[in-house]
Design a protein around this nucleic acid. Sequence first.
DNA 1: CCATGTGTTCGACTGTGGTCGTACAAGCAG
DNA 2: CTGCTTGTACGACCACAGTCGAACACATGG
Lengths: 127, 127
Amino acid sequence: MPPTTAARPAFRTFPAPADLPEPLPEPTRADLRLDVVLGALSDPLRIGIVRALLLEAEAFDHTCGWFGLDRPKSTLTHHFRVLREAGLLRQRQYGLERRSQVRVDDLQARFPGLLDLIAAWTPPEAP
Amino acid sequence: MPPTTAARPAFRTFPAPADLPEPLPEPTRADLRLDVVLGALSDPLRIGIVRALLLEAEAFDHTCGWFGLDRPKSTLTHHFRVLREAGLLRQRQYGLERRSQVRVDDLQARFPGLLDLIAAWTPPEAP
DNA sequence: CCATGTGTTCGACTGTGGTCGTACAAGCAG
DNA sequence: CTGCTTGTACGACCACAGTCGAACACATGG
């Protein structure tokens, strides 16, 4: 298939290790709604999480503790669930820990350019 | 200045009639914050307003009543103010009526691709 | 002057979202 | 089993957003 936008810096998608646990419940690609996605991204902490996953991810996916967020665990659970239910993140349970990754393919297909906007975001109050 | 993205379907920007009233207070282009903009677009009614202005605008700008929104006037005032304070709309007072337009240039410069996403949005529950 | 049309401001109600503490569940190490 | 770690679940609190009615401000047309 011909690349529609050839020179774009595609975000890395890592192949699945083939013995993955099932993802937690999430909306289908066809069920993604732009208003819901944008609402999930309207919180600086949440858009920061997605941006960090897009830019600094070196492995397949990451646990909640991988981000340097000094918030109580229940708060993080809340924000990660909002991101997953909006369709931005896919989460899998690896024994003890729950790992998250950005649904790059689905988001590029439904909302082309959105991930580039997220990657270009900068946190407020950062002089 | 060379156009950075040449082949994009640019949204129409209408030249100012030169005797325009001053715009209502709005954030500077440099003060636009992506999280705030996305938060303003997270409401279906509001993203619908911006989309309608992008797609169906045939004149320079439009009054609140131009949209077929059957909500009380105070509700519309609220939503248009949110869009203006987020930096999505520019509003001018023309005697009786207040007209709105999308800040196409500023948004394309700060968040390239965002307007295309908005234009591609479709309202929910529309079978 | 008075009526009409456009839009704001104020106050109120209601629902929801962000934040957090505490308690609890599950996997793993000793 | 006992602890340790990772994360959820539940409930509470507080602030803010969405909604609306009523009253007001303003320009225009009779």
